[in-house]
């Protein structure tokens, strides 16, 4: 029950974030949206870890959180160099 409600809320969050990812309008908006999407995935997997004792996913979450950060920073620096990237 708790898992269903929490995952449903996170699913709605993901839909809203994808809406912003598609709409833009600036590249930085999309970069922020991707970062939030990764955060939402980590949150959803953490719910699965808590409810179904799916502990083997914990290391995946650790890697995903760090890779999301590195990717977002790299993309943001690219958007700074190429100001026409919109």
């Amino acid at each position: 029950m708790v898992a269903t409600v929490a995952l449903a809320l996170l699913g709605v969050t993901a839909v809203l974030v994808v809406h912003r990812l598609v709409r833009g309008p600036h590249a930085l908006d999309r970069i922020v949206a991707v970062e939030i999407l990764v955060t939402t995935v980590v949150a959803g997997a953490a719910v699965a870890v808590a409810v179904w004792d799916y502990t083997s996913a914990v290391l995946v979450l650790l890697v995903l959180a760090l890779l999301g950060f590195i990717g977002s920073v790299t993309a943001a620096r690219l958007a700074e160099e190429r100001e026409d990237m919109r």
């Binding site: 898992a3 929490a6 809320l9 996170l10 969050t13 809203l16 939030i36 939402t40 949150a43 719910v47």
Partner: peptide, 12 residues
């Protein structure tokens, strides 16, 4: 878990 999901939704 429920509070966290609600805050995530508010962020979205």
């Amino acid at each position: 878990l429920l509070c966290g999901a609600v805050f995530c939704l508010l962020g979205g």
